[in-house]
């Protein structure tokens, strides 16, 4: 049964990660456009650092790093009078009260904690990609629109909220839909983060015994399992393509772009 649940895990991860990553991306893009210099540096560094390095390295890095960061913060709060160093040789030692999750916590807490870490990791990495896309989209909104808003006496904040943000989506959507595809295709990496996803089950079920020494009643089945996964992902991306094309058509409606103009002509 666990195997079928794992498909749900993947879908749940997608459903949670996508909005969180979008929020991270929005924050990153807004920071990179900020007039406050340090904030702009942070935004730009976030975008370029995460993008220049293989994402899988980030997945492996953040899971440990986030875990240790949380435990360290809790450690500072809960045990202020602890005098031993945190790093003792190859060990990372915090007081027992700061352990996450607590040693006596039930199994589902451990699993949920792992899942939350995975979601955060995905959101940080894909947030950077999304920030890149949205930064470009904000730049792509015609200057005339922003200048008109200014000439109407709107403040910077008003211009941002009323003019820039509603118009940027049509420019951001091609990049974001590309990103959604990338996100779907990154979900198998979940199993590297220790979450029981669909890839995990293939390995788990296949490795009851060393495959070399067992006589399977059937032929090597993991090939077919992965073939099924391939087909699953193919269908999923195809479906997303169709849905995203619909959204794009709707967003284009009434926009000052070539596609919007073509739509207007077709209706007229």
């Amino acid at each position: 049964m666990g195997m079928y649940w794992s498909v749900g895990t993947v879908l749940l991860l997608l459903a949670i990660t996508a909005p969180v990553a979008l929020a991270f991306g929005f924050g990153g893009a807004a920071a990179a456009r900020s007039h406050f210099l340090p904030l702009r540096w942070i935004g730009k560094a976030y975008i370029s650092v995460v993008r220049g390095i293989p994402d899988i390295a980030f997945f492996l890095f953040f899971v440990i790093a986030l875990d240790q960061a949380f435990e360290y913060i809790r450690h500072r709060i809960k045990c202020p009078d602890w005098d031993e160093p945190i790093r003792q040789g190859s060990d990372f030692v915090v007081c027992t009260a700061a352990k996450l999750p607590q040693g006596n916590a039930p199994q589902w807490v451990h699993e949920t904690y792992g899942f939350v870490l995975a979601v955060l990791t995905f959101a940080i990495v894909f947030g950077a990609f999304a920030a890149n896309v949205m930064y470009g989209a904000m730049q792509a909104v015609p200057k005339g629109q922003l200048e008109t808003a200014e000439s109407y006496g709107m403040s910077r904040r008003q211009t941002f909220r009323r003019i820039l943000v509603p118009q940027m989506w049509v420019y951001a959507l091609p990049g974001l839909s590309n990103l959604w595809m990338v996100l779907i295709k990154a979900t198998p990496l979940l199993f590297l983060l220790g979450v029981e996803d669909i890839v995990y089950w293939a390995r788990e079920l296949g490795s009851f015994k060393s495959p070399r020494f067992t006589d399977y009643p059937h032929a090597e089945w993991r090939m077919w399992y992965f073939l099924a996964l391939l087909v699953f992902y193919l269908c999923f991306t195809k479906l997303s393509e169709i849905v995203l094309a619909k959204i794009m058509a709707r967003l284009t409606h009434g926009q000052a772009t070539a596609a919007g103009e073509a739509q207007r002509r077709a209706q007229a």
Binding site: K185, T187, P188, V199, A202, E220, R222, M223, L229
Partner: peptide, 22 residues
Amino acid sequence: IFAFRGSPLFIQFFFAYFLFLS
């Protein structure tokens, strides 16, 4: 193009490995 762009590289590796193995 659709098959290779539409599916995760990670799964492609797994599938190819077990395909070659069998």
